[in-house]
């Protein structure tokens, strides 16, 4: 299946309608998830309505790891099997992953405010997500720094894999660090997940996932169009001299 998409021409034809269609589907699921989260789900007996923030926060935390895993797979197939589309896929997914990380950070601190009444609490999970956010920024910076796309693609793929090796180590070291400095009572994760919270949670995750698919596909198409435009311009110069 992967190889059929590897050919840019077939990819462009196939995804002609997939982008907007997925976007529409994503919005529908999102609305349905929000409705469940805000209206149907009961308030948490301890945190009251603040627990509803979980429906936008926890799926975002899952997505920022999921998107990075997607980028690792794309980087591997770009380095090993030299798929032309693989590094375009990774490049297109990075900004979406960074946005999910940002959502996770902001909603996390908003959720923490009523509990710890500070805007930013150095909770172990939030801190690891913050470091992950900088890894995303570094990845995107590599793409913008190197001119030729093939070189930028391979360099970004290497950085992505280096990041992948380091993320578990960073996660572990931050957890080790947070147990060392015993602070605030409960962390976000201690909340038990009541049964009727599970469905809205996974609806929101599905919504995020479908939106991610839509955004990556459209971003890839935009990237391919701009590369073709760049190619035509360069060929025009080439034919002149």
């Amino acid at each position: 299946m992967i190889s059929t998409f590897a050919n840019p021409h077939r990819f462009m034809k196939f995804t002609q309608w997939m982008g907007p269609a997925l976007l529409g589907l994503g919005i529908v699921i999102l609305v349905w998830g929000l409705y469940q989260g805000l209206v149907l789900a009961p308030a948490d007996y301890r945190q009251g309505d603040a627990a509803r923030i979980m429906f936008v926060h926890v799926p975002a935390a899952m997505m920022c790891m999921g998107v990075y895993a997607f980028m690792v797979l794309a980087s591997l197939s770009s380095l090993i099997w030299k798929h032309a589309l693989a590094d375009i896929a990774a490049k297109s997914a990075a900004p979406v992953g960074a946005v999910f990380t940002l959502i996770c950070l902001i909603t996390g601190s908003l959720w923490g405010k009523p509990i710890w009444n500070t805007w930013w609490e150095w909770d172990a999970r939030l801190t690891s997500v913050l470091v992950l956010f900088f890894i995303y920024l570094g990845y995107m910076a590599i793409w913008s720094a190197l001119e030729t796309p093939q070189k930028a693609g391979r360099a970004a793929a290497i950085l992505c894999l280096v990041g992948a090796v380091n993320i578990p180590i960073i996660k572990w070291s931050v957890d080790w660090w947070s147990t060392l400095h015993q602070q605030a009572s409960i962390t976000l994760t201690k909340i038990s997940l009541p049964a009727d919270y599970i469905v809205p949670l996974f609806t929101m995750l599905a919504a995020y996932g479908v939106l991610f698919g839509a955004l990556v596909i459209m971003n890839m198409r935009a990237e391919i169009f701009s590369r073709r435009a760049e190619m035509l311009v360069q060929r025009q110069y080439a034919s002149m001299d």
């Binding site: 021409h9 032309a84 589309l85 391919i224 590369r227 073709r228 190619m231 060929r235 034919s239």
Partner: peptide, 13 residues
């Protein structure tokens, strides 16, 4: 061996 002005190709270089 320099390529003649090939028509607009769909492939992404």
């Amino acid at each position: 061996f320099t390529p003649r002005q090939s028509a607009v190709t769909d492939e992404v270089a």
